[in-house]
Amino acid sequence: MDFTYKKPEALTDVRTHYCPGCGHGIAHTLIAEVVDALKIRKRTIGVAPVGCSVLAYFYMNFDVTEAAHGRTPSVATGIKRVLPDRIVFSYQGDGDLAAIGTAETIHTANRGENITVVFMNNAVYGMTGGQMAPTSLIGQKTATSPNGRDPETMGPPIRMCELLNTLDRPYHIERVAIDGPDGVRKVRKALFTAFKAQVEGKGYSFIEVLSPCPVYQRLSPVDALRFVGKEMAAYFPVRVFRKEGTIINA
């Protein structure tokens, strides 16, 4: 796959509301590049979550619908089942996907819906003001874990790729990280694999993107990238878990 470094057609030419150093803008661009590369812009439908990326429909130059918090994969299911030739993806944060919407996440994967789920894991709730996420690291200080996440009372962070990898139906499961230029290229490659799988009718694909949130990770943009690449990746291994329907051992 060759990518030309220009504004993708699948991205609108507006300034985003994302904070400096946020991973969402990067992920949006990568998705748009993949959509362009696969020439599917006119048949792509995105499902935006509740969370920081709730306004994603302003930035995507293709059809997008909102969904209630956590119900993103159900809405995607409802679209894909009646329009099987369209390319449907859900774009979800950690609160949306791994807390309030855990049931929908698991059952959509278990049915093997032919959709793509993009899971933006930045270990914190952004839009509501930096609360503890299901994926916040042990000891991580947030508005609702002021003394750091204590696994004894709050449970340890949930590893979603590993959890979904116990199911039979997913076709592709992969965790990648926005932690620098090389990481970004790998994110794009993973997204390409996932969207291509859907175009080919292979089934459910799940891409977890470890992502910086300098504001609520309470770090500078550069340190946030380091946090993603080192601390988050230490707990959430960056690798392919499922390839062409087959479990890949670490």
């Binding site: 209630a68 119900r71 995607a76 409802g78 329009l83 049931a103 059952h107 049915r111």
Partner: peptide
């Protein structure tokens, strides 16, 4: 589809009618 919950079911409706 027999959904995993009433919540999932109404949101599948949302997706289908949005489409």
């Amino acid at each position: 589809i027999q959904a995993e919950s009433e919540i999932a079911a109404i949101n599948m409706v949302f997706g289908t009618v949005a489409a």
